[in-house]
Simulated scan of single mutants.
Amino acid sequence: MKRHFDTTAAAACVLALGTGLATPALAQGTAAGNVTIYGLVDACLARADLGANHLNALNSGCLFGSRLGFRGTEDLGGGHRAYFTLEGGLSLDNGQLGQGGRIFGRKALVALGGPWGAIEMGRDYAPAFYLVQPVDPMGLGIGTASSSLWTGSAATTAARNDNAINYLSPTWGGLSLRLQLSAGEGGAGGARKSKGFNLLYRSGGTTAGLSHARVANAADTDEDRATTAAVRHEFGAFSLSAIVQSGAWEGSRTATAPASASSVFSRKYRSYLVGGTVRAGAAGKVAASIKRYDDRTSRNYDLTQFSINYVHSLSKRTDLYAGYSRLKNERGSTYAVSDAVNSYSGVSTGATTSLLAAGIKHVF
């Protein structure tokens, strides 16, 4: 359930996250308005087969990443508005901040919108994420599509870019455009220049789109790049999805080392996903997907992965879930199976690795 507070109170909460102390002076100079405080908590029991070893763990975020967020908007008149989002990740198993300890590592942006669209500035997901996430049958949870599909960010596991400027178009007949430019700012903090876009179509039960991403290497002499096409259609009680991605990591790989055994994304690759969902009774849903990663370099480090999840809704805000994912490594690769937050690394060379997990998710 979302709670609404005046801006003064919410600002105090935001500052308290960073400083541990909200002072009376904070109330001065804030404008009247509404802020929504929201969040999600997800904890799971997980068992991973890594080949030679097994891992048993209580983890945070197998289905969705746990988070605490603040968002607000102000009507400026004439169809214009100002808005912001501040969202931080949480590790529920140990109470620490996610995304390397960032307070608002999931999203931090301020924006101005109007009939012409919106301009957003801050830290945000790369455009490809906004295409892959709604199409992936697993919802980027257990067996996430992002284990073999790049979401277009400078960091392969983060899905987000710092120093980003977004343009969001109005929607024309179900079609919208998202553009993003991200300044590397001299490589500070590991940031690299990036640019990308997506064209997203939503109408009735259909979600479809195309995205392209380019991220410069640290020296800004070459770029990693990928083009993604995806479609999902709802057929009443079930849905079908397909994603195809073609990429070339020219900025991060070399002719002498065109691919890595442990990190999906080689100098030239193709990645494919097919899957779907089906309702199971009044409160349940089953999702499944098959992924194939085709490393098209001389090392040919391929993978095949099958995933299946079941989610049972206890209420509008609380779900129980269980899932299984199995990843077959080929020709000496050591790719890891993943869920929404965790990558279960340490896989033996060429091993078939798997993940079995069950947990509870609650939103507020």
Rank of each mutant, 00 (worst) to 15 (best):
M1P: 11
K2Q: 12
T7P: 00
T8H: 09
A9Y: 14
A11H: 14
A22I: 00
T23Y: 06
Q28F: 08
G33H: 00
I37E: 01
Y38W: 10
V41Y: 10
A43V: 13
C44K: 06
L45R: 09
R47D: 12
G51V: 06
A52H: 11
G61D: 04
D75Y: 02
G78A: 08
H80L: 11
A82T: 14
T85H: 11
S91Y: 08
N94P: 04
N94T: 02
Q96I: 02
G100T: 05
G100A: 13
I103Y: 06
G105W: 00
I119G: 05
D124C: 04
Y125R: 04
L131Q: 00
V132Y: 03
V132M: 08
P134Y: 02
D136W: 04
D136I: 03
T144E: 10
S146A: 15
S147L: 11
S148N: 13
A155P: 01
A155I: 09
T156N: 14
T157V: 12
A158D: 15
A159I: 07
I165Q: 05
L168A: 07
S169T: 07
G174D: 08
G174N: 09
L175P: 06
L177T: 06
R178D: 13
L181R: 12
G186Q: 03
G186H: 05
G186S: 03
A188M: 09
A188R: 14
K193F: 09
F197P: 04
F197Y: 14
N198V: 04
L200D: 08
G204I: 04
G205D: 02
A208W: 03
A208V: 02
H212Q: 13
V215W: 01
V215L: 01
A216M: 11
T227E: 00
T228K: 01
E234S: 14
F235L: 12
A242Y: 05
V244E: 10
A248G: 12
T254C: 00
A255I: 05
A259S: 15
A259R: 00
S263E: 12
K268R: 15
R270P: 01
V274F: 07
G276A: 07
G281N: 03
A283V: 10
A288H: 03
K291L: 14
Y293A: 08
Y293V: 07
D295G: 04
T304D: 14
Q305C: 06
F306L: 15
F306P: 06
V311Q: 14
H312G: 11
S315T: 13
D319H: 14
L320A: 11
G323M: 03
Y324T: 12
L327Y: 07
Y335K: 09
A336I: 08
S338H: 09
S338K: 13
A340E: 05
A340D: 05
S345G: 13
G350T: 06
G350D: 04
T352P: 09
T353V: 13
S354E: 10
L355P: 08
G359H: 02
G359W: 02
K361A: 15
V363E: 12
